[in-house]
């Protein structure tokens, strides 16, 4: 897993609520047996017409909009548990997703793939959407160590939550399996009792 520390980036806004994982990556693209290449089909049906040509008006198709931070409406990642959703977001190049609310399974999947879900207040979220309206090149910084997200343009910042263990994993590029394998003996003892 890639290490995560601090990111300064412009944002890609997606002001839609309840973005489900079927939208992030539709089921018909889940036939792969490897983890790579899902970015191509990220938001497939919002991004492309049935003939494969890009839909004008969708944010990812706007060449002037780039960034490593995806900012979305509340309850992002609901629905199917498919980790392919986190893979496609990571593969596309996002390192952070900001929303006012995340679905549980998506949050875990993102964290397990070095993508940081940052939960902010609705007010802060709206502020991010607004700043984009006036200045597309405004930068946002996300500091995992300090657990602070800052709107560099306005100076507004907000603290975000992450559990200590997950923070440790992300900053060190360490994953859960490494940890679980390291306590194998304890698991074996538990099994015996």
């Amino acid at each position: 897993m890639k290490k995560f520390n601090k990111i300064d980036s412009t944002i890609v806004p997606l002001p839609v609520e309840n973005v489900d994982t079927d939208q992030i990556i539709p089921a018909r693209f889940l036939k792969a047996t490897t983890r790579e290449g899902f970015g191509e089909n990220l938001f497939r049906d919002w991004r492309y017409l049935p003939d494969g040509s890009p839909k004008t008006g969708f944010i990812l198709n706007d060449p002037s909009v780039k960034g490593e931070i995806l900012v979305a409406g509340k309850n992002f990642g609901c629905g199917s548990s498919r980790e392919h959703a986190a893979w496609s977001i990571e593969d596309y190049g996002f390192r952070v997703v900001v929303s006012s609310f995340f679905a549980d399974i998506f949050k875990n999947n993102a964290l397990n793939n070095g993508v940081l879900p940052v939960q902010v207040s609705q007010v802060f979220l709206n502020g991010l959407f607004q700043i984009f309206e006036t200045n597309q090149t405004a930068k946002i910084s996300v500091d995992l160590e300090k657990q602070i997200i800052t709107n560099n343009d306005t100076g507004d910042s907000e603290h975000f939550e992450i559990n200590e263990y997950k923070k440790y994993c992300l900053t060190n590029g360490y994953d859960d399996i490494d940890y679980l394998l390291s306590i194998k003996e304890e698991i074996a003892t538990f099994e015996k009792n």
Binding site: E83, H84, I105, L180, I187
Partner: peptide
């Protein structure tokens, strides 16, 4: 339900890391 990284955790160790809901 769990994601694929978690499937791998369970296959590897029969355990999963979960915060208590």
């Amino acid at each position: 339900g769990i994601g694929t990284s978690e499937v791998e955790q369970v296959l590897a160790t029969q355990c999963i890391l979960q915060p208590k809901p």
